[in-house]
Design a protein around this nucleic acid. Structure first.
Lengths: 356, 356
DNA sequence: CTGAAAGCGCTAACAC
DNA sequence: GTGTTAGCGCTTTCAG
């Protein structure tokens, strides 16, 4: 294995093989119109000189870089990094490279420099993997956002003329709440994520709707806002117990916060799930090892990234080959319920414990 | 905000401003030798046309891309993504873009295509952020690895003629074990990470050494190997209790596994920390909310990324400006102890609880 | 201070 | 089949 590769130029290969650069170009692009003889010779020289074509020069002339821009935020958290993980493998498989940018904050307002950096490097498309928070999508509407390249947005409210890929958080919340209702809990509270997050609002909305449809009340005091962190839930759950003394179960908007809820509830002497049922969201690997193991909603982050890459490339290639342009569309992926002990009050029926 | 930018060329700007392309080039590169008048005019046109220079064309001619290649693996786990997080912000600050590659497995053998992809895109340097596992560093020695560009390796055993940046895992293990000794535990076991990982071996080695120096035995049965996951520790700790019935404390090689240890120990009726002291490694945000809160070793992942980027750029720029070349060196960063309840058997003295 | 010519490494369009 | 010419968008000589 020798990595000197990449330093020889097409010219050197050409003269070493006694042909023109054009012929070398034909060989490396696997064009048919080269005599078997010449091809062999050129390939030999290429191997010898460890020649690798410059993707840069190619991008410049082809006006196509086979590179995608990925914009993310909060990479230190498990959600964004799982998404990025799936994007890298899908992109690799499709033969695309990734130019990565991370916003310093979720609600960063000034995204123009990000776009400029990406565009000046001629990315073919962009995956905007920053969750919709506060006003951080305003610029989508502003002026003529007529990028010549496709963008796919992740974790964003569906919108006309824009491609989005998201987990169906509303559905997730419904499944969680319905599950608690099936377990015959009567006083279902909610600890939400930060409500400037679209995803947090969706989860909360479905909790409310599910309760109302079942004939229960969902009052404001039955819900307390957290900020996704265990630390925030530590305080939120105290407040919830105060505001809603009858509470007998809680739908917690993510697993990190659910961990703190379990911890506080146990200290107060509640038995879980007998006195207090708990359902989380995310299915982080550790949630199977909480005490008790946590019932939760599983998001398929892997599919999110894969679909996002596929959509982006589909749009790129349709525009490029003069095919019928692919219309932007919004894709929602269904999450699933993982039942563990923290919510299993009725031991009969559909008990379905999963420890893995 | 308008993102059409990037589509006008330097030629168009030049003719619109009635100057040559060189003059435009001088303006965008802030060269002094342009009359204030011309400069103003050109800048006006640039703004009007929303012209942005093509980083691609620049890289080609300057033989300098201001782009770093980052190779990672296991992004879905918290460690690698925290490291990447710090790399992105440090690179951004230094004005470098990032080309991201993720290996499908930690011990991927065939890294040549990765290098080729990076080199063909003319990265100025590479940060190899894949932990040293098994034989996945063999190629470093093979043949003439004379890349013309600098590489900095993360989480790797220091080695001649190579730049590495790592957390001092050995020191971390010492601190953890010494802490348990200070708390007067007499039978300190270890649940290690997978021993093909260099970092896992370091943590284990220091546990052994610290015990021996204190006059205790560190027998093979006192240690069980896990694979970093909670699931693996679930089984490992059962085995440890079997092999080492007297065990009164455990240094667990990461927090995820420590969570499972707490869970199993509690089920068996052990009181923590009275009957069993536990120290983890990593200080994940949730560890403050385990029951009981977990004493752990804090790695400063943030500094790792920052230092890695700085080292890489230092090497790039020294080679470029004809400065004295920067010698490769190995940097180790000291981790720190975060004391929480899981190890605090002696309530006197230096009790120093931290819940945050 | 400014412009003309050359070229980074490659490929598209045309010759032969 | 193969070579020639031109040029992607920019910067670097070097004149003037």
């Amino acid at each position: 294995m020798n990595f000197r590769s990449g330093r020889a130029t097409i010219k050197e290969v050409a003269s070493a093989a006694g042909v023109s650069t054009q012929t070398v170009s034909r060989v490396i692009n696997e064009r048919p119109d080269v005599s078997p003889d010449t091809r062999k010779r050129v390939q030999g020289v290429i191997k010898e000189l460890e020649y690798r074509p410059s993707a840069l020069a190619r991008s410049l002339i082809r006006q196509r870089s086979y590179t995608l821009g990925v914009v993310t935020a909060g990479l230190r958290h498990i959600g964004p990094s799982r998404t990025l993980n799936s994007i890298t493998s899908a992109a690799e498989e499709a033969g695309y490279s990734l130019l990565l940018k991370e916003l310093p904050r979720y609600d960063a307002e000034d995204v123009a420099p990000i776009f400029q950096a990406l565009l000046s490097r001629h990315v073919d498309g962009i995956i905007w993997a920053v969750p919709q928070v506060g006003e951080n999508r305003n610029w989508v509407n502003q002026q003529s956002l007529d990028l010549k390249i496709p963008i796919v947005y992740l974790a964003m409210e569906p919108k006309e003329d824009i491609s989005t890929v998201s987990v169906d958080n509303y559905l997730g919340g419904r499944i969680a709440t319905s599950h608690l209702l099936e377990q015959e809990y009567q006083h279902i509270g909610h600890i939400s994520g930060p409500l400037d997050w679209w995803e947090a609002r969706e989860r909360m909305a479905s909790w409310k709707d599910a309760l109302k449809e079942a004939g229960f009340e969902a009052r404001d005091e039955h819900c307390v806002e957290g900020n996704w962190s265990s630390a925030s839930a530590f305080q939120a759950v105290e407040k919830l117990f105060e505001q809603y003394p009858d509470v007998d179960s809680i739908f917690v908007a993510n697993d990190q916060m659910a961990l703190a809820v379990i911890q506080v509830a146990s200290q107060k002497g509640f038995r879980i799930p007998e006195d207090l049922g708990i359902v989380g969201f995310d299915n982080i690997p550790e949630s199977a090892f909480f005490s008790p193991p946590l019932t939760t909603i599983q998001q398929d982050q892997y599919t999110v990234g894969k679909v996002a890459v596929e959509e982006t490339i589909k749009m790129i290639e349709s525009g490029w080959d003069g095919l019928a342009p692919v219309e932007p569309r919004s894709i929602k992926l269904a999450p699933t319920l993982v039942v563990r002990q923290s919510s299993l009050r009725l031991k009969n029926g559909k008990k379905e414990v999963d420890l893995a």
